[in-house]
C-alpha cells in the first residue's frame, strides 16, 4: 500500500513538474510575443510621430505659398477683389431636393439606350486657351516623370 502511494506521489510530482514546465514555457512564449508586439507597436507609434511632424513641416504656410507661386497659376485672394461677394445675403441658399409625398404608382419608362450627346455650349470666359492647356499638360507630365524616378 505504501509503495503504491509512494509511486503515485512520485508520478504526480513528475506530472506536476512537467505541467509546470509546460506552463512556464507557454508563459514565456506569450510574454515574448507580447514584448515583440509592444516593441512593434512602439516602433509604429514612433514612426507615426515622425511622419506627422514631417507632414506639418512639409505643410508650413511659407512652403505652401512658394509651391503655389512656382507651380500653380493661382493668384492670392484679396478681400477687396471680385472674388468676394458684397454681403452674406448674396450667398445662394442650398436648394433642398423635391421629394414627392406619395410614391407614383406608374413609373415613367426610362430608356437605357445612350443618346448622342450634344456639344456643350462653351462660355467665352471658360474656354481654356490652347497654350494654357499645353502648359498644364506639360506640368502634369513633369509630375508623372518625377514620380517614376
Amino acid at each position: 500500500m505504501f509503495r503504491l502511494s509512494g509511486l503515485f506521489s512520485i508520478c504526480l510530482a513528475v506530472l506536476c513538474g512537467a505541467l509546470l514546465f509546460w506552463t512556464s514555457q507557454s508563459v514565456q512564449r506569450a510574454d515574448q510575443k507580447l514584448s515583440q508586439l509592444e516593441q512593434e507597436n512602439n516602433s509604429e507609434i514612433e514612426s507615426l510621430r515622425v511622419l506627422s511632424a514631417e507632414w506639418d513641416y512639409l505643410n508650413r504656410p511659407e512652403r505652401l505659398e512658394k509651391l503655389t507661386v512656382n507651380n500653380l497659376d493661382m493668384d492670392e485672394v484679396h478681400a477687396e477683389g471680385e472674388n468676394f461677394i458684397d454681403a452674406s445675403e448674396d450667398i445662394p441658399q442650398p436648394i433642398s431636393p423635391i421629394v414627392p409625398q406619395v410614391k407614383p404608382e406608374i413609373l415613367q419608362h426610362v430608356s437605357t439606350k445612350t443618346q448622342p450627346s450634344k456639344p456643350a455650349v462653351q462660355n467665352k470666359s471658360t474656354v481654356i486657351q490652347k497654350s494654357e492647356r499645353e502648359d498644364f499638360n506639360r506640368l502634369i507630365e513633369s509630375f508623372s516623370e518625377e514620380g517614376q524616378q
Binding site: V77, H78, A79, F84, I85, D86, A87, S88, I91
Partner: peptide, 11 residues
C-alpha cells in the same frame, strides 16, 4: 478674411 472665411458686409 480669406484664411478664416469671413463674410464681408458692404451694406
Amino acid at each position: 478674411a480669406s484664411i478664416m472665411g469671413l463674410t464681408p458686409n458692404k451694406t
